[in-house]
Structure formats: C-alpha cells, structure tokens
Amino acid sequence: TGEEYIAVGDFTAQQVGDLTFKKGEILLVIEKKPDGWWIAKDAKGNEGLVPRTYLEPYS
C-alpha cells in the first residue's frame, strides 16, 4: 500500500530507474526517501523514482 499523489507537472526520466509521468497523473508513493526522490508506481504498474517537488497529495 501507499499514498496517492497527483503530478503537478510533466517529468521525463533523466536516468535508468526514474519514472516518466504527465501532469494530472495519479501516482502511488511507496517509499519517501530523504533525498527528495520518492519511489512511486503509476496506473500501469510501472515503478520508479520521482521528484517529490512534482507531486501533491491527492484526496
């Protein structure tokens, strides 16, 4: 389980392990790392690192 967040901007993977997403996408945050990069999963089940500055809590 995780917390749902909504993307407030588009993000394109910079390196292997990053997750590309579009503004408005709902992501499930699995782990919040202290460096500001969180592990998240998208609706298709893809998992990767995302920058927390692009996310806001979804309710």
Rank of each mutant, 00 (worst) to 15 (best):
A43V: 12
N46F: 09
E47G: 06
K32H: 05
F21K: 00
T1V: 12
T1C: 09
T20M: 04
I26A: 03
P34D: 11
W38I: 02
G45I: 01
R52F: 14
T20I: 03
K41R: 15
E4V: 14
A43Y: 11
K44V: 10
E25C: 07
V29S: 01
K41S: 07
D35K: 05
T20A: 09
V8W: 05
G45W: 04
D18M: 15
T20W: 04
L27N: 00
G17D: 05
K33C: 08
A7L: 02
P51F: 14
Q15R: 15
V8Y: 04
T12K: 09
G48K: 01
T1E: 14
A40H: 00
L55M: 06
T12G: 06
K22F: 10
Q15W: 09
W37Y: 09
L27F: 06
F11D: 01
A43I: 11
G9V: 12
A40S: 03
Y5H: 05
V16D: 13
W38Y: 06
L19H: 02
Y58I: 09
T20N: 08
G2L: 13
W37F: 10
K23V: 08
E4Q: 15
G45Y: 04
K41L: 11
L55P: 00
Q15C: 09
K22R: 12
L49D: 03
K32C: 03
T20P: 13
T20Q: 07
I26S: 03
V29G: 01
D10I: 02
V29Y: 01
R52H: 12
L27H: 00
P57V: 09
I30W: 05
K41I: 10
L19W: 02
G17V: 04
A13P: 06
T12N: 12
I26E: 02
V29C: 03
I39N: 06
L28S: 06
A7Y: 02
Y5C: 03
K44P: 03
V50K: 00
Y58P: 04
A40K: 00
A43N: 10
I6L: 08
E25D: 15
T20H: 05
G17N: 06
K44F: 13
L28D: 04
Y5N: 02
R52N: 15
A7N: 00
I39C: 06
Q14N: 11
Y5E: 00
G2P: 15
G2A: 12
E56D: 07
Y5P: 00
A40F: 02
E31F: 14
Y5A: 02
A13I: 03
I30E: 02
K23C: 09
T12S: 13
G2H: 12
L55S: 00
T12H: 13
I6G: 02
Q14A: 12
G36E: 06
V29H: 00
V50Q: 00
E4H: 15
P51G: 05
E25L: 03
R52Q: 14
K22M: 08
D42F: 02
V8E: 03
Q14D: 08
F11W: 12
G36Q: 06
D35W: 05
I6W: 06
G2S: 12
E47Q: 11
A40M: 12
D35C: 07
K22Q: 09
F21P: 00
P34A: 15
F11Y: 14
I30V: 10
V29R: 01
G17A: 06
D35T: 10
A13T: 05
G48S: 01
G48F: 03
A7R: 00
I26Y: 05
G48Q: 01
F21W: 02
E31Q: 11
D18S: 14
E56A: 15
T1N: 14
K33A: 09
E3K: 10
A13L: 04
G48W: 03
N46W: 05
A13Q: 06
K44A: 14
E56L: 14
E56W: 13
V50N: 00
I6Q: 06
L49H: 09
P57G: 04
F11C: 04
L49E: 05
T53N: 11
G2C: 09
A40W: 01
D18I: 15
F21E: 00
A43H: 14
Q15G: 13
Q15P: 03
G24H: 06
V8D: 02
E4M: 13
G24Y: 06
G9A: 15
T20F: 04
I30Q: 07
W38G: 01
E47C: 14
P57S: 07
A13Y: 03
K33S: 09
T53S: 13
E4I: 14
K22L: 07
G36D: 08
P34K: 09
L28T: 11
Y58N: 07
E56T: 13
E4G: 06
Q14T: 12
Y58K: 10
K44D: 13
E3I: 11
I26C: 06
K32Y: 07
I39H: 11
G24W: 06
V50A: 09
N46R: 11
W38L: 03
E25N: 08
F21A: 02
T1Q: 14
L49T: 13
K23I: 08
W37L: 07
G36I: 06
Q14S: 11
K41V: 12
K22E: 06
W37I: 07
